[in-house]
Design a protein around this nucleic acid. Structure first.
Length: 104
DNA sequence: CCATTGACGAAGT
DNA sequence: TACTTCGCCAATG
């Protein structure tokens, strides 16, 4: 495990822990927040193993289209419990539920 | 060092 | 709206 990788995990999880209940963030959004604009895929990679590092609201991370992560069957239920509504195609309506980190 | 992979994203069809 | 193509880049083999 490289040092860079460890920093990456810390920064990503740090941002994830700030996502409020009932809102979602995209992988690209998180990548930008940690200064890695073109590296959304790496964020997904880290989150796929996030459970190993502790408890974080990683269910609040979806892709830019609002699509849920594969092999995370409980994700939809967890989001619905927080009031997130899904579109007919199974995606989160990003227009409504995407976290706007500029607002406090 | 080269090739492949990925919980991605934007643009094109 | 849904599917495809291509760019992206650290990590892995």
């Amino acid at each position: 495990m490289t040092m860079l990788h460890d920093d990456l995990i810390y920064e990503i999880l740090s941002v994830v822990s700030e996502i409020p209940e009932g809102r979602v963030a995209s992988y690209g959004q998180i990548a930008r927040l940690i200064g890695r604009d073109n590296n959304a895929r790496l964020v997904g990679k880290v989150l796929s193993m996030a459970e190993y590092y502790g408890r974080y609201p990683c269910h609040r991370v979806v892709n830019s289209a609002g699509r849920l992560a594969p092999s995370f069957s409980s994700q939809r239920k967890l989001l619905e419990k927080e009031g997130v509504v899904f579109k007919k195609n199974g995606c989160v309506d990003m227009k409504i539920f995407q976290w706007n980190e500029g607002m406090t």
